[in-house]
Simulated scan of single mutants.
Amino acid sequence: MRQIVLDTETTGLNPRAGDRIIEVGCVELINRQLTGRNFHCYINPERDSEDGALAVHGLTTEFLSDKPKFAEIVAELRDYISGAEVIIHNAPFDIGFLDAEFKRLDIPLFNAQVGGVIDTLVQAKEMHPGKRNSLDSLCDRYGVSNAHRALHGALLDAELLAEVYLAMTRGQNSLSMDLGDDDDAQNPDVELELVPLAEIILLPASDDELAEHEAALNSLDKEMRGTSLWRTAVN
């Protein structure tokens, strides 16, 4: 199974107000394994970033001025994501910007080009209701180090999200690897055989053992000059 973890950086928050994509970062997973075949590019948005967005990503107009425009990278991006299941944190945000760029170029919308979308923010809210589920919070929760992340970057965030996603969805895979041999663990089509539990045998205490137990409790009661905690807990 081919999955792509995707993130973008933008000039602002609203593509309908003219905000544009300035960076795309993608990380490839094949059968839940990082391949190292990533996609990353900076893009000239032909406009300035809003102050709030600039404080987040730090990509200045001067830095982006000699970078390719979206139309120049779109073919490579579409080839890269084509048919894959795409993993995004807060998917409506990134897809909204990508769709706006595609519309400008009269290109089919994002969902028509991929094999499905997983929104890890939705997953996280279902798994951890009432808790903070930002990417930074999930990194802390799942022990993914983001100490090197001074500013947001699309490729760095995609790499962090890939680790978080694998940690969030690891449960059943870890069980399979513990129960099977190495070959089976690498083959997702191998079905594990369920081994029935052995019959549970109960061995009741003998009369002599019960008498010794009662004598020990009586001794505790005498030392405490009352009823021992053991009798209270049992009753």
Rank of each mutant, 00 (worst) to 15 (best):
Q3N: 09
I4M: 10
V5G: 00
G12F: 03
G18H: 13
R20K: 05
R20A: 06
E23P: 05
C26D: 03
L29G: 02
L29P: 00
Q33H: 07
R37L: 08
H40F: 06
P45L: 01
P45E: 09
E46L: 14
G52Q: 07
A53Y: 08
A55H: 15
H57P: 12
L59A: 15
E62N: 08
F63R: 13
L64F: 09
L77M: 12
F93S: 04
F97R: 00
A112Q: 01
V114I: 10
V114G: 00
G115P: 04
Q123Y: 02
L135D: 03
S137W: 01
G143S: 00
G143Q: 02
G143K: 06
H148I: 04
H152C: 05
L156M: 15
A158E: 03
E159W: 09
E163T: 06
E163F: 07
V164H: 02
T169R: 04
Q172W: 09
Q172M: 13
D181Q: 08
D181S: 12
D182L: 05
N187T: 11
D189Y: 14
S206N: 12
D207N: 10
L217E: 04
D221G: 10
K222S: 14
K222Q: 13
K222V: 07
M224N: 11
R231N: 08
A233W: 14
